[in-house]
Amino acid sequence: MSSIFKRIKDKLADYRRPGYYKEFDYHWAIVVDIDRCNGCEACVVACYAENNIPVVGKKGCDDARIFNWIRIEKYIEGEYPDVRVKFIPIMCQQCDRAPCEIGCPVYATYHNQDGLNVQVYNRCVGTFTCATYCPYDVRRFNWFTYKPDKPLDEQLNPDVTVREMGVMEKCTFCIQRIRYAKDAAKDEERRVRDGEIKPACVQSCPTGALTFGDLKDPNSEVSRLARSRRRYRVFEELNADPSVIYLKRVMGNGKRSHD
């Protein structure tokens, strides 16, 4: 009898196994130093360019259907003249215990060996559950068939699928770039080198606020930064175990001893 329970338990563990990636080679992560980030949004456009993100127009934006896979949230504190503004880039946090994943009935979003939350567009049936469950509101839905005006489509990146109407999408950590680098590394029978992969946003960021790398490698830049005492993760208390690590902004109370 107990062996049956054990088998059921093992089977369930197959379905949802936080730390699954630990058995494999990599755990990709992004460290965001919000003390560097100046809110310039180069990362946002870079992501549009790399990932064939559709434009929805003024009406679409008004309907809150903008597709920004990465967004810069801005919060203003205080009243004039003691105004403090804070920026934070939010992309998919690639949660290890991803709330979105348990929602999807068809495994269209699941966890891969590298600790990434992967979205399989072909498999998605559009139940919205993942997006509802995602605490970070990073998921975007193809409400319509979005087609760029010709010939803007000539710029579409052939390495990235153009999503069809009715499917969910989100930041992938630029998985196509990860794939390229992993293939290259495999050909040369080595591990992916630190800094070899740069997702589009990370690559573009003028201030160097974003760093991408492998958390399993203790000597990688992300591992080094992740040990910073400024480290935190957004909504840590939700226990989603995100792979995006933020470094706190250094900020006074805005008054700086108002003499």
Binding site: Y15, V106, T127
Partner: peptide, 20 residues
């Protein structure tokens, strides 16, 4: 796709999902 049916692609359903 939301019901379990045998398929060549080896796809299965997420029995952890409340929707399931």
């Amino acid at each position: 796709w939301t019901v379990p049916y045998p398929n060549q692609r080896g796809l299965w359903l997420n029995f952890m999902s409340p929707l399931m």
